[in-house]
């Protein structure tokens, strides 16, 4: 009989800029090695996953990372007392740092996770990407951190218009001239602070890889995908699993060199000479992970087994010729449910 495992999952915001939570849950529910029951962990009362009772047993609101890890730990302790969680899979970018910090404490309480180390988390930050590329011998677009538009003058001979203007944590905009750089600089720095990262604009097509590293340099899973349809805000609305060996080699190289621990998503650009450039590394499961599940690599299941310290075998193959097409869908919800999560923080 399959063991019963209770798993807390965040990122239930399955909206047009989706959090990965709901896709992760679908993978967990299809796991063959255990029978999952799901506890949703939400920040806002309108996250759709809260109301999906066929896949989420119960949801608890948790405090934003800005409240500090002490408060988060206090809330998780309360939830754990009621639910006896075995595993938590955090999926929300801004919370990863806090969960990585809390990993040893949660472990002592009996809640298991399989996260990147703090060093891995910080090394791959956007501001550190040039260093990262150099250290691990991975092609990255040229980029510089600037603290004012005037700073750009020092680097202007190294760049050609257009350039990509990026925030420390989020946001990326393309500037075709200095005026646009100024506008984007002001807007993004007002929201995310300094520095602003300016990056060489790479023409080409976008590829993503999701996978799992075991923390010792071995690849346990890797599925490359080419985005087929991209929304106005740059999210994949459709994508196809591909078997590009260059992409897989690059992924193995990345995992081997960094000894990556946990799930990740690589965002890459392939230029017309067929060369791949690494644009970003997300230290978590991506929202399109259900494609990986669909082609035979159940990444959420792997993460749970790794968190629990179970033996896992690398998954090296997948079914080619599968694609995902995302769709949106309206649920009808009674206001009483919204009332309950809004006033008690539980549903």
């Amino acid at each position: 009989m399959r063991p019963k495992i209770k798993i807390g999952v965040t990122g239930l915001n399955a909206i047009d800029n989706p959090g990965p939570g709901v896709a992760v849950i679908r993978g967990l529910l299809e796991a063959s090695s255990f029978e999952a029951s799901i506890i949703g962990l939400a920040y806002e009362s309108l996250e759709p996953g809260i109301y999906m009772h066929d896949i989420v047993d119960r949801t608890y609101q948790i405090p934003y990372p800005t409240s500090g890890t002490d408060l988060l730990l206090e809330r998780l302790t309360y939830i754990h007392e009621k639910e006896s969680l075995d595993v938590i899979i955090p999926n929300f970018d801004a919370e990863l740092f806090s969960f990585i910090k809390l990993e040893p404490k949660l472990k002592k309480m009996g809640i298991n996770m399989f996260m990147p180390t703090l060093d891995q988390f910080e090394e791959r930050l956007k501001v550190n990407l040039p260093k990262f590329g150099k250290k691990y011998n991975i092609n990255v677009p040229k980029s510089e951190s600037i603290y004012s538009v005037a700073d750009f003058r020092k680097h202007k001979d190294d760049f050609e218009w257009p350039i990509v203007v990026k925030g420390k944590h989020y946001d990326a905009k393309i500037a075709y001239n200095k005026d646009q750089l100024q506008t984007h600089f002001n807007k993004i720095s007002a929201k995310w602070g300094l520095p602003i990262i300016i990056q060489e604009f790479k023409h080409g097509s976008e590829f993503n890889v999701t996978g799992v590293g075991d923390g010792n340099g071995n690849t346990l899973s890797a599925v490359p995908m080419r985005k087929q349809y991209i929304t106005e805000i740059g999210k994949a609305w459709g994508g196809i699993a591909i078997t590009d060996s260059k992409l897989l080699d690059l992924t193995h190289h990345f995992i081997k060199e960094t000894k990556w621990r946990g799930a990740f998503e690589l965002e890459l650009m392939k230029n017309k000479d067929g060369k791949f450039y690494l644009l970003e590394i997300n230290p978590r499961i991506p929202a399109w992970v259900y494609l990986a599940v669909g082609v035979g690599q159940n990444i959420p299941e792997l993460i749970v087994n790794l968190a629990l310290g179970n033996e896992v075998e690398p998954i090296t193959t997948f079914k080619a010729g599968k694609m995902f097409i995302r769709y949106s869908w309206e649920m009808i919800v009674d206001i009483e449910e919204f009332e309950k999560i809004s006033t008690t923080g539980e549903l």
């Binding site: 806002e44 996250e47 409240s67």
Partner: peptide, 16 residues
């Protein structure tokens, strides 16, 4: 008033 919003960076800090 209950504001309907989605997770974003600006969660309020609560110091209870």
């Amino acid at each position: 008033k209950l504001e309907s919003s989605m997770p974003n960076k600006f969660g309020m800090r609560t110091e209870y």
